[in-house]
């Protein structure tokens, strides 16, 4: 049974794409077949983390939505784990004309859902990760609505706290079976246990991980999947713990 996970943040800059890429790699390392959709059509970026060169991309999600290709043709194998796990990425186009066109013409939400379904079937995926656009527009709500698990990434600041409260409530209205919070970019001098306690109490929701604000991560500049080069780093251990919680979840039942 495939588990669909949406990663979301109320605002941009939370490190959402980075967390998604690393989570996908960690799940693959655990032996799973993972598909990643970059549905952040307006500002795509996750392909950079997987080191996907523009030239090696033949089709994008945009092409699929416009009927130019089958979804599995847009999926690129970006990571093959030693244990047999694998990560496929369906990138969005970074061509400014493509971005302008998709924003102008919109697309049919059911096409996106068909893309998810087809890819799950075509590639026999264990996990489907959807890297969403920040904020709660219709496309994002559609992604959240079909997710088994919603992972909300926030920074410890007032704007994120406010926005996240909206997302959590909306997800509950949509009966998303599982909502996990990841507090990212926590200054290391903070008392992590205290932060976790406060966040869980405020949202009545479990915190899957607190990821430290790290100079090492900043230096990496989202140029590579950090957990693969620094598996012992506190950030990597945090991602590992998120993967563990997602894996342990038993609420996955046929809808």
């Amino acid at each position: 049974m495939t588990k669909i996970i949406s990663t979301h943040s109320f605002r941009g800059g939370t490190g959402k794409s980075n967390v998604t890429a690393n989570l996908a790699a960690v799940l693959a390392n655990r032996g799973y077949r993972v598909g990643v959709f970059d549905t952040d059509i307006q500002s795509p970026g996750i392909h950079v983390i997987f080191g996907l060169a523009d030239a090696s991309v033949r089709y994008t999600l945009n092409d699929y939505l416009w009927g130019n290709c089958a979804i599995e043709e847009a999926a690129v194998e970006v990571y093959k784990a030693p244990k047999g796990g694998v990560v496929y990425l369906v990138p969005s186009s970074i061509d400014p004309n493509d971005i302008a066109r998709i924003l102008r013409e919109k697309y049919d939400a059911s096409d996106m859902h068909a893309a998810f379904r087809d890819l799950i079937t075509a590639l026999s995926l264990d996990y489907l990760l959807i890297d969403t656009h920040p904020g709660l527009n219709e496309e994002t709500l559609l992604s959240i609505a079909i997710s088994d698990s919603l992972v909300i990434i926030l920074r410890p600041d007032q704007q994120d706290f406010q926005g996240t409260s909206v997302t959590v409530d909306v997800a509950r209205r949509l009966r998303v079976p599982e909502v996990n919070l990841i507090v990212n970019k926590v200054p290391p001098e903070y008392d992590f246990a205290d932060v976790q306690r406060k966040v869980e109490r405020a949202y009545n929701c479990q915190v899957a991980a607190l990821l430290p604000l790290s100079i090492d991560l900043a230096q990496n500049a989202s140029a590579t999947v950090f957990t693969l080069i620094r598996p012992d780093h506190p950030f990597s251990r945090g991602i590992e713990s998120v993967a563990q919680q997602l894996e342990a979840d038993v609420a996955l039942m046929p809808a």
């Binding site: 049974m1 495939t2 669909i4 859902h113 998810f116 379904r117 799950i120 079937t121 709660l136 219709e138 709500l141 559609l142 609505a145 079909i146 997710s147 088994d148 406010q162 409260s165 909206v166 409530d169 909306v170 209205r173 949509l174 009966r175 046929p254 809808a255």
Partner: peptide
């Protein structure tokens, strides 16, 4: 917060989505 939530959930789109969420999930998974 309530205003923001209302602005989302009061839309027809959301109401439809809310009603069909589980069905959509099942469809996606085939």
């Amino acid at each position: 917060k309530q205003q923001q939530i209302d602005s989302i959930v009061e839309t027809d789109f959301f109401k439809r989505l809310e009603a069909n969420a589980r069905q959509l999930r099942s469809q996606v998974k085939g």
